[in-house]
Design a protein around this nucleic acid. Sequence first.
DNA 1: CAAATTTATTAACATAGGTGAATGAGGATA
DNA 2: TATCCTCATTCACCTATGTTAATAAATTTG
Lengths: 192, 192
Amino acid sequence: MQDLLIKHIENTLGEPVSPEMIASLSTLSFEKSFDKKELLAETGQPCNYQYFILEGSCFSYYLNEKGYKNVIEMAIENYWITDASGYFRDTPAVSTIETLEPTRALLINKKNFDKLCCSHPLFDRYFRILLQNGMAFLHTRIAKTISEEAEARYREFSQTYPHFIQRIPQYLIASFLGIKPQSLSRIRKKVQ
Amino acid sequence: MQDLLIKHIENTLGEPVSPEMIASLSTLSFEKSFDKKELLAETGQPCNYQYFILEGSCFSYYLNEKGYKNVIEMAIENYWITDASGYFRDTPAVSTIETLEPTRALLINKKNFDKLCCSHPLFDRYFRILLQNGMAFLHTRIAKTISEEAEARYREFSQTYPHFIQRIPQYLIASFLGIKPQSLSRIRKKVQ
DNA sequence: CAAATTTATTAACATAGGTGAATGAGGATA
DNA sequence: TATCCTCATTCACCTATGTTAATAAATTTG
């Protein structure tokens, strides 16, 4: 069931989703379950789906020159995740997406995504709003990554995303913040 | 004249722009000239416009806790620039946008932007593609900012954006890369 | 053109965060 | 219950980048 997604769309748009839209969604997307540690996308491969997490969690990472994993995004219930390059631009994925727990998600492939957006202007608006919010968020994230110290970034992150702090292992949060797990330990010790 | 923008749309979409679309554009946007160092958006204020640079250049920056400027984006001819939070979400801008030279730009306000997107599906697609490319670009930028050393980031930047290296002052490029101008000097000395 | 301002370079020193290694705490698996 | 793993913590040491300051070069302005 895509109840969660429908609520998310209604919350985002501030208006109800019609039965026809629900029907389109049902036709154009499908649900799938994944074990812990399954890959939803893989660096260098096509990324065919965009995932809306219904239950569980996952994260995407970029492998740097030294072969270390660097967290780009984390997603729990009510979040979309994909490899933006791979999915939107039909190029090989630059990131890998991996589940952290057994996870259920709604999947939409690129063709159906385009159909969905064409099928009803509200879908189009919904996804444009998501992208716009994403841009705004990433600008702020970049700005703070390059301009604030690790301690300030951690403080803000834990205030803004307490649910992530609870659900996601610390070494991934460290990576997301751009530091090593040892440094995050040091900071946490100092902070509390 | 919005010739530059029309070409940009055609290049992005891979198909021609119809006379009606050109008419919509003319009605819904306008051209404006700015002196050097004029502000196109200001932290804390509403950001009413999205700017397509026809001639000149500008950059956006975020003021951190210490009051230092940190470069988020740089834009020269054929680039769009705005404060994503302020413009798309009608919240106060988180960044300031400033011209680096006398600059001519096409301006579109939010209402007209929405009208434009509704007026023809190709506009809608064009702007969605821009947003998608923006997301892909920012994911990669974040990933590299947190995972590669400053020297590697500078090397890649100068290879990928030689035209920026020529046009934009070094201290802004340093800031964009997340380092101080002194560090960039040191890196440049080592590199060449 | 001269003065004033902005930008780039260099150097000596300081520090946030990285590195590598050891230790312990949970969970999972058998 | 014993054996793995994975994850978090701590410590000693290291290094990339920041800081401050001085100087030079380039650019703007009157």
